[in-house]
Design a protein around this nucleic acid. Sequence first.
DNA 1: TGTACATCAGTGAACGCGCGTTCACTGATGTAC
DNA 2: TGTACATCAGTGAACGCGCGTTCACTGATGTAC
Lengths: 209, 209
Amino acid sequence: MPYSKDHKARTRERILEAARIQFNRHGFDRVTIDQVMAEAGLTRGGFYAHFSCKEELFAEAMASFLHGRGAQWREAEGIEPQARQLIMAKRMVDAYLSRQHLEDLDGQCPLIAYATDTARAGDRVRDSYCQLVEAMAWLFENNLDGDESDKRRRALSLTALCVGGMILARTLPESKIAEEVRLAAHTAATSIWSRNGKTEMPGNERLSA
Amino acid sequence: MPYSKDHKARTRERILEAARIQFNRHGFDRVTIDQVMAEAGLTRGGFYAHFSCKEELFAEAMASFLHGRGAQWREAEGIEPQARQLIMAKRMVDAYLSRQHLEDLDGQCPLIAYATDTARAGDRVRDSYCQLVEAMAWLFENNLDGDESDKRRRALSLTALCVGGMILARTLPESKIAEEVRLAAHTAATSIWSRNGKTEMPGNERLSA
DNA sequence: TGTACATCAGTGAACGCGCGTTCACTGATGTAC
DNA sequence: TGTACATCAGTGAACGCGCGTTCACTGATGTAC
């Protein structure tokens, strides 16, 4: 057994991290395998010893966020999943919708950067995306007050608001409105996490169909 | 002057409509000019008599939505911009977050389908995107109650919630959670449009920086 | 301790393909006479 | 009314380039003896 046991595993991690950053910056289609491998200090040919195809790399890079860069981020922001207190949900919302997070293109949450690419990709990629949504919703849900179904609903709407607000702010040209959207989303999110108990139900039958 | 006056203009519209649909389905990078032109009943070479490059086509196709397919959609949903009544904001929210809209990939709002592609494109494309955001926020703003700055804020957060909820619902694998997100976003949006007066302000100084 | 060997992570040239863009040409149409 | 002509929207072959993927090879390293 040449090379130490975890030699290949560490190389794989390097490729994944390089890929995650490149995909964040340029999107799936505009990142080449050459680019990723070069960024990881390797050459093209070695790629297929680690991944079966480019799309698998994408799915794995997205999945790596949760326990990699995402965990660092949660730690830095003082987000402890098990805390189970309202203050934690607020901290999440504040950090997620912060200007720092908006500007940190390399470290940004994949839910923001990969949405459209994922919608057009295969099941494996979409499953990775789904797991991140579940993880984010879970973090919110476990740190809200109220009855179960209401907590779940509010957690999911917070997720939609955080991700949606950041996607818009990132997509709009750097201007007044991008900031306005981010801040408006934050205000609305603050209002959702601080409101306990019931919210109005939609009255449109098409929606509950 | 061979060909009637508006002959070329009509051809251009055909190309734009074909492009809008193809971009909705497959995204900017995966749509070829061949594909668009064939869909419009033309051949490759004629393209550059109408547009200077592929990205210009993208910007124009997005811009064409507002007065084209988007106008049809608003009409079908009974959304009259000038109505200035709360019920109109509700109708917008209901229609935007409806299952019909989610499933109508070809007619879907570009804010949902083009977000990530736009974030990586040039100024012209981003300006088109910005105009659509402004238009949507304007529609909300003019149909809400409350003081001006509060209306604006709620209009922008409704926009973020509608777009974000739909992007997530579209990106997640077809499953329970995709529906949950869409419905949760709708519940939260309903709560925002029906709430008049002040909402809590964020308490984090970083956000107002 | 030192040497030969087997393993396999990584290399880099090559393949095949498709795409954006260009350009010389065609042919349908409105107009001048 | 009919014909020759000018215009220019649209054609389709060709160019140049880059990318995902393959594959025969290299060479660094741990192990057996």
